[in-house]
Amino acid sequence: MIIEKLLFHTFIILAPVLIQTSLLEHHKWSKSPIFTGVLNGLATLTCLAFTYEFAGLYWDFRYVPLIIAMVYGGRKAGLIVLAFMLIGRTIMGGDILFHGLASAVIASLIPYYFSKGFWKMSPVKRVVAAQFIGLWPIAIIFLMLFVFHLPSQFLSELHSITFILQFGLVQVLGIGIAARLNEWMVEKKVMREEIIKSEKLNTLGELAASIAHEVRNPLTVVKGFLQLMKRQSKGEEDEYLAIILSELGRAEEIINDYLNFAKPQFEKVERVHIKEILSEVSILLNAYAVKECFFGEPPGG
């Protein structure tokens, strides 16, 4: 029964990531810290609404959206989730309300501290780090448990020990899945940006190649006329014309090298039968030749 409840809470904490990655992927505001904080804050309130009471404490995954929002959405998003959590816990009330609010604030300290350097890690390390950070709220829950209950009385029951292991395992697993989904979202965003950048560079390369081709034509004309002038000139002008022709030659070589580099490469090279190709072209153009023969103007007309 407890596994079913914890799996339901796992679905709740994964819902914000699934909404951002699937339904609202193309909206810019869906990646903002405020929206991330509100979405995970609602997930926290939902976890509180379906909390499971055991041994005098409320057991749920309210801290998971806090961790995910803090490390992946930023400190602003994490503080928004913390505000949702404090409001929800206040509405719930109870004998240990103050301790519940204090535990929420203490649980947010470690994610808040690690959120600054979180993005300096590799994707795999970020997932592992998020899972390790998820152990901190569990430690706080256990600390409250030992403060309000006798350890020997609570741990003497096998059912209680099994419950602790199940809760910790499913929560860490849920954090790992949520972190991996966030990494997938980040990877898709980076890949999309790289594709757009590649398309822009390809367009700029084609534009630059066409401009270089147009620049080469007047250079060729200028070089030709300067060569004619050199043949007819005498005296000191020969030295200046030689320098000009040399520099024009360098510019022409640079443009030719760029055009050769920008020329599209053949992706696939294969052998063809030129005789068959010429036969097909001949058959294709034969109709046009016959048309011109019968309907064209007679010679000398």
Rank of each mutant, 00 (worst) to 15 (best):
Phe8Leu: 11
Leu109Phe: 11
Thr44Gln: 07
Pro33Glu: 08
Lys120Thr: 02
Lys5Trp: 12
Lys275Glu: 13
Leu18Phe: 08
Lys234Pro: 10
Glu236His: 12
Ile67Phe: 06
Glu292Phe: 12
Glu193Ser: 12
Val38Trp: 09
Ser210Ile: 05
Leu245Met: 05
Leu204Arg: 12
Asp95Ala: 02
Met144Tyr: 00
Gly100Ile: 00
Val215Ile: 07
Pro65Thr: 06
Leu23Phe: 04
Glu253Tyr: 12
Gly300Asp: 06
Ile141Tyr: 01
Gln232Pro: 11
Gly74Arg: 14
Arg250Ser: 08
Glu199Arg: 13
Pro65Asn: 08
Gln265Trp: 07
Ala208Asn: 08
Lys5Tyr: 15
Ala208Ile: 08
Glu239Thr: 12
Ile164Glu: 03
Thr90Cys: 01
His159Met: 13
Gly176Ser: 02
Ser282Cys: 10
Pro123Lys: 05
Gly74Thr: 14
Thr90Met: 02
Thr220Ser: 14
Leu245Tyr: 03
Val269Ser: 13
Gln265Leu: 14
Leu18Lys: 08
Pro16Lys: 13
Asn260Gly: 07
Gly300Trp: 14
Ile140Ala: 02
Ser160Cys: 05
Val222Pro: 01
Gln166Asn: 14
Leu48Cys: 00
Ala139Arg: 04
Val269Gln: 11
Ile13Gln: 01
Leu145Asp: 02
Glu253Asn: 10
His99Ile: 03
Trp184Tyr: 15
Ala15Glu: 11
Gly74His: 13
Ala262Asn: 06
Met70Tyr: 03
Phe8Cys: 13
Pro264Asn: 06
Asn260Phe: 08
Ala139Trp: 03
Ala129Tyr: 09
Lys76Trp: 07
Glu276Ser: 15
Ile283His: 15
Phe266Ile: 10
Tyr63Cys: 02
Leu278Asn: 03
Ser108Leu: 00
Thr51Ala: 00
Ser152Tyr: 08
Ala69Pro: 00
Pro33Phe: 11
Glu280Ile: 06
Gln171Phe: 02
Ser152Ala: 08
Ser115Leu: 04
Gly41Lys: 09
Gly100Pro: 01
Ala208Leu: 06
Ala83His: 04
Ile164Cys: 11
Glu194Trp: 10
Ala130Ile: 00
Tyr288Cys: 14
Leu285Ile: 10
Phe154Gly: 05
Leu18Trp: 06
Glu237Asp: 10
Ile196Met: 09
Leu18His: 08
Lys120His: 09
Gly296Leu: 08
Val222Ser: 05
Gln131Leu: 15
Gly301Trp: 15
Glu183Phe: 11
Ala178Gln: 01
Gln131Met: 15
Thr203Asn: 14
Lys197Ile: 12
Lys189Tyr: 03
Glu157Val: 12
Ala129Gly: 12
Leu109Lys: 09
Ala83Arg: 02
Ala77Ile: 02
Lys189Phe: 01
Ser233Met: 07
Thr90Gly: 03
Met229Cys: 13
Tyr113Lys: 05
Arg62Ala: 06
Arg75Thr: 14
Glu199Met: 11
Phe148Glu: 06
Lys28Ala: 15
Ile19Leu: 05
Phe11Ala: 15
Trp29Leu: 04
Lys263Val: 05
Lys197Thr: 11
Gly73Trp: 04
Pro151Ile: 11
Leu285Gly: 09
Leu204Ser: 08
Ile138Ser: 05
Asn202Met: 13
Leu79Pro: 06
Ser279Arg: 15
Gly205Gln: 14
Ile164Phe: 12
Val124Tyr: 11
Leu285Cys: 10
Ala55Phe: 06
Phe50Thr: 03
Lys275Ala: 15
Pro33Cys: 14
